[in-house]
Design a protein around this nucleic acid. Structure first.
Lengths: 349, 349
DNA sequence: ATTAGCACTCGACTCGAAGGAGTGCTAACA
DNA sequence: TGTTAGCACTCCTTCGAGTCGAGTGCTAAT
């Protein structure tokens, strides 16, 4: 598994060129373009070695070489030089993400958008999953004589509500009482901790059972909590794949776009990395999905405080500008975390 | 512009067949498949006439004929036989749309989804535009000592809220007072009628100016109202176009998908028909958009009470199963209107 | 160990011939 | 006069042969 310095330099040259041109790379063009001080014949021999070791592949006998998944993996882990974002790129990321944003999911939408724009690949994202966040407050507010609005407030400005019709008019005091009890029982717990059936009983006994009224209200609370995590998936720049010659084949383009439409597959791919730190790279077949085995998926997570709440990523051909994508993603991730925390501070410092 | 009965029958046969096969239709195949009691030579002559009149086109001299936009238009207006939905289709539409739905826009999302599934074309939709709906209630609710939640309630269970930090603690009574004044000034007006700057002044004078507090609250109200109409566009089944041979050309497929990504174009296309009754059909170049001049757009509107609030449609090749699409759309539209009114009744009878 | 040289491979492209679907026209027919 | 059979013609599509060129692997010389 050890590659001497010369092999590494040649492999790097081949992958860099292939990422650039999407054409199989021949020994002569490497000898010409890169100042390695070697003849094409020597390079040819080295390339044959690299192929035998599994880092390169040959589409057919008389063609140049292209990197294999293993080649890309080695490139990403050891060879690749990181690029810096240009100032224009940094500015456009800031502009996209520092707009006045109210809803957390809106922030992720923006992040996804700008990421596909900058990388020119397809971006994926799941909005924050808030199961692990704590419930801040519950309120029951009268709206019309026979309608009340149930409001559930979670972290970071996330609010859900549900209108509910009640069978008979109740006094504001009664509602305040209900609100207080609900607050006491519910707030401070994470959403996934909440043992709702148990709580319902407790509340009933505290308020003095009048389930005719309480029933619909408690149902609404449950409904609100359910609404918090609609496991939606965001994609942007799906048609970017048409820019890449490896998808000039209609069948491949179609397969790719079809996978993007399978929200649950994307969801799983993005959820994969919740426990891992930093940026996660799945090259080619590493994710094991037949339909996109010629794609690379690069993902990362974002957090609220210390808790990972969601994930964003990009998907594109294995021949991808890895370093560009990684540096954009690092920056965008940092920005997301910043902005989330700003939101929390503002709304609940 | 008059077509005798025989020409009509031949035109109909050609268009029916072409919709079926996507291949230019020759005189012989018409003579064989349809029992018109005519020889291919006669049909050939009629076809030459129909071409000269503009109803048919010939891709090249020795090919069969295909319908022109004008041909499709005549077909849609006069020849087409309506098909009924199958019971399975009706059931699957019902299943999709009668699920417990809370948010109005969710209903439209479902409708769009089922429409693309049944027609196998691409569906488009704009969620309800509520500018014309009336504001029902405004409430300001304390959440934490220095935070209040501003809630704006519109029709049909649509609620928007905004958390706002206030500079110093205020008494619940003060908030109730503010709520009452806001309610009095705002409720009952349609959103587009609201002259917000003027109202802000009025409220300030009523409550007794304390703009340090009122400012953020009023801003929040404005923010909520703005949020009501996010002119989002929903599309479903975009990759369905890959099923149609006219899009086997990569460039065309790409162009089509790119247009779908241009949310404002789609929005305009859908907004086009707000004043028209029933189902609206734009064939080929009739919509004047170069990029999708080989597509037909079929749209209709849906209403809340008597007021048109949104629009849904499908887009696909001009060679489209018009009758199928029209009958599905009629049914789905009816369902949307029903469900909207159910929602209104439930939440604000 | 490196390199020059050379025969060989194989995809991409071009060209032309063959095949076939469909037409328009003419002449015959009812 | 309207309909039909027949036929020459057009033009797309398909297929195979031939050519070109980039690139390889191997051998022998340095």
């Amino acid at each position: 598994m050890f590659l001497d310095d010369r092999k590494r330099r040649i492999l790097q040259a081949i992958i860099d060129d292939y990422i650039d041109t999407a054409e199989p790379i021949g020994s002569r063009s490497i000898a010409r373009k890169h100042e390695l001080g070697l003849s094409s014949a020597t390079i040819r021999n080295e390339m044959a070695d690299l192929e035998e070791m599994g880092y390169l592949e040959q589409p057919h006998t008389s063609a140049g070489r292209i990197p294999s998944d293993k080649g890309y993996r080695f490139y990403v882990d050891q060879l690749m030089k990181m690029t810096e974002l240009s100032t224009e790129e940094i500015i456009s990321i800031r502009n996209a993400m520092e707009v006045r944003i109210n809803e957390l999911s809106q922030l992720i939408r923006q992040a996804s958008m700008i990421m596909s724009k900058i990388t020119r690949y397809t971006s994926l994202a799941v909005p924050p999953q808030l199961k692990k966040s704590t419930l801040k407050a519950v309120q029951v507010v009268p709206i019309e004589p026979d309608k009340v609005l149930v409001i559930v407030v979670i972290n970071a400005g996330v609010v859900r509500n549900n209108m509910v019709k009640i069978p008979k008019e109740v006094s504001p005091d009664y509602l305040i009482n209900v609100s207080n009890v609900l607050n006491e029982k519910l707030s401070g717990h994470t959403l996934e901790q909440l043992n709702l059936p148990f709580i319902i009983k407790e509340v009933e006994s505290s308020v003095g059972a009048c389930s005719e009224l309480l029933g619909p209200i408690l149902n609404s609370v449950v409904e609100c909590i359910k609404q918090v995590d609609n496991a939606e998936v965001i994609t942007d720049g799906a048609t970017n794949i048409f820019n890449y010659p490896e998808f000039r084949d209609l069948i491949k383009a179609r397969e790719f776009l079809n996978v993007l439409d399978e929200k649950d597959i994307i969801c799983k791919l993005l959820a994969n990395n919740y426990d891992k730190k930093g940026i996660n790279i799945l090259i080619g077949n590493e994710h094991g999905l037949e339909e996109i085995k010629e794609c690379t998926l690069i993902t990362t997570t974002y957090s609220m405080g210390d808790i990972v709440v969601g994930s964003i990523g990009i998907i594109g051909p294995t021949r991808m500008e890895y370093s560009k994508v990684i540096s954009s993603m690092n920056y965008i991730r940092k920005k997301i975390n910043q902005e989330i925390n700003k939101l929390i501070d503002e709304k609940f410092e």
